[in-house]
Deep mutational scan, measured.
Amino acid sequence: KITVTFNGEEKARRYYKKMQKHNLKVEIRVENNQWVVHVE
């Protein structure tokens, strides 16, 4: 499981979509004013 933190929504969403293309289970959320993407 990987957790990647971004300081911008745009970058986070781009990464999220990229990971989805690989058929990975991805989850995006905001934690402590940071955009966090969890990849299983």
Rank of each mutant, 00 (worst) to 15 (best):
K17G: 05
Y15E: 02
T5H: 11
R13W: 14
N7M: 10
Q20Y: 05
K18I: 12
F6G: 01
M19F: 04
N32L: 06
Q20I: 13
K25W: 09
W35N: 00
I28N: 00
G8S: 15
E27L: 06
N32W: 04
V39T: 03
K25M: 09
R29V: 12
H38R: 09
H38I: 15
G8N: 15
E9H: 05
N33I: 03
V4H: 06
N7Y: 10
K1G: 14
R13S: 04
N32G: 14
R13N: 07
H22Y: 13
T5L: 11
I28P: 00
R29H: 12
N7Q: 12
E40N: 11
K25C: 06
Q20H: 05
A12I: 03
E27H: 07
R14S: 10
H38M: 14
T5Y: 15
I28Y: 01
I2S: 06
K18R: 11
E40M: 13
F6Y: 02
E31N: 05
T3D: 04
E31P: 01
V30P: 06
E31M: 07
R14T: 10
H22Q: 14
E10D: 12
N23G: 15
K21G: 11
K11N: 15
V39S: 03
H22R: 13
M19L: 09
V39K: 01
Y15S: 01
Q34H: 10
T3V: 11
K11Y: 13
Y15T: 01
Y16W: 06
K17D: 14
E10S: 10
K11Q: 15
G8L: 14
N33E: 09
L24K: 08
V37H: 00
K18E: 14
E27M: 07
E10A: 13
L24M: 11
W35I: 03
Q34S: 08
A12E: 02
T5Q: 07
K18Q: 13
F6D: 01
A12Q: 02
E40L: 14
N33G: 15
V37T: 00
K25V: 09
Y15Q: 02
E10F: 08
I28R: 00
E40W: 15
E31R: 04
R29E: 07
N32R: 05
N7W: 10
R29M: 12
V36M: 05
N7H: 09
I2W: 15
T5N: 06
V30W: 13
V39C: 04
N33W: 05
F6K: 01
V30Y: 15
A12L: 03
N7A: 11
R29D: 06
H38N: 09
N23M: 07
E9M: 11
G8P: 02
T5M: 11
N23H: 12
Y16E: 04
H22L: 15
E10I: 08
Q34N: 08
E31L: 09
